[in-house]
């Protein structure tokens, strides 16, 4: 039976969950994954995966430079900025 590690997933997804949320999440993921487990009954041996329902290939654009948006427009939504930079708190490695 699947047993997702909620702590690990929350860390990968950068979601701070409270203990109560983790408990609830565990139960809900368990229920959903139990349902999803029915897929195992279906034999998909030798079946190609579909990532696009409408198959297409080779969509490309020509290498032409287009005007950018001014820095002001791009930074207008920034939660914190310094001059024309986005500013972020101290970076720590995990």
């Amino acid at each position: 039976m699947p047993d997702p590690n909620v702590e690990h997933l929350a860390r990968l997804a950068r979601l701070d969950l409270s203990e109560a949320e983790k408990e609830r999440m565990r139960a809900q993921l368990d229920a959903i994954l139990t349902y999803i487990d029915k897929l195992r009954q279906l034999d998909t041996e030798g079946v190609e995966p579909t990532s696009h329902a409408i198959p297409m290939v080779n969509v490309m654009r020509e290498d032409e430079a287009r005007p950018c948006l001014p820095a002001g427009a791009m930074l207008a939504n920034a939660p914190e900025r310094e001059g024309d930079f986005f500013r972020v708190p101290k970076i720590i490695e995990e």
């Binding site: 998909t44 079946v47 579909t50 990532s51 329902a53």
Partner: peptide, 10 residues
């Protein structure tokens, strides 16, 4: 697995 099931649905 889900992508293979998707093929079958198609």
């Amino acid at each position: 697995k889900a992508q293979r099931v998707r093929t079958l649905v198609r």
